[in-house]
Amino acid sequence: MKRLARAGFWLLVIAIALFALFPFYYAVVSSFRSGSDLFTIAYRPERFDLSNYVAVFERQPFGRNILNSVLVSGSVVALSLGLGITAAYAFGRIAFRGRSLLLMTILAVSMFPQVAVLAGMFELIRAFGLYNTLPGLILANLMLTLPFTVWVLTTFMRELPKEIEEAAFVDGATPWIVVRRVFLPLMAPAAVTTGLLAFIVSWNEFLFALTFTLTNERRTVPPAIALMSGSTAYELPWGTIMAGSVVVTIPIIALVLVFQRKIVAGLTAGAVKG
């Protein structure tokens, strides 16, 4: 009976792992097959044909798209953390009038449907002359990352011991020195966690990237993959799409494997965003 339960347990574990991994595995297998090979189904890799990988970088500016994604996501993370850390100190550790109202507002913004700001954001970005530029995307993506960065950092900030801050005040520190010299070093792990989440959110963002860019050179990876087309309008280049998908997914998987503990901590700390 006990052995049976054990076998059932492991069967379930394997089933879940297979379900989680199979789509990516299948994408890898498909990415090595090209032409008419794709019209037969293969469960195992047969040969390592890299022509799809060559094609994805040759037929469109995919390298440029990746660079765009890195630039946008990197800037968004830096800006969110930079703005968020001081705000988190204020929200997490200082009792001031209107604190909880403002914090609830910030949380509410992180639940905004993106489409609700689309028209206004479009106008704003055009007014700033940022349409079809990376700074435009950076600005738009901040709407997604800044509120939850503030929120998650605030929950981490609250957990830091009060006495350390008080010791610093007795030592003559100003609030700014407390943030810079005492809390910033202590918040480094939390900042890494939050930064990772912000990076993933920005890296995966699609609606703004689709709407606020026009030319292929300015697109980030998600719209680039979504809009990949083949030589004919009727046939999608599945092999190339899978190759592109694998290329952008591998760094994310590496991040997850390396930082899974931090990511889980961040997800559960703020319980924000999926």
């Binding site: 011991p161 006495e163 350390i164 010791a167 005040f169 007795v170 003559g172 520190a173 005492v182 202590l186």
Partner: peptide, 19 residues
């Protein structure tokens, strides 16, 4: 402010700067 009162304080949890 505390620093201008001519006091020093020893806390229960020591409150040393860990870094």
């Amino acid at each position: 402010v505390p620093a201008k009162r001519g006091i020093a304080m020893v806390f229960q949890s020591y409150a040393l700067y860990p870094h």
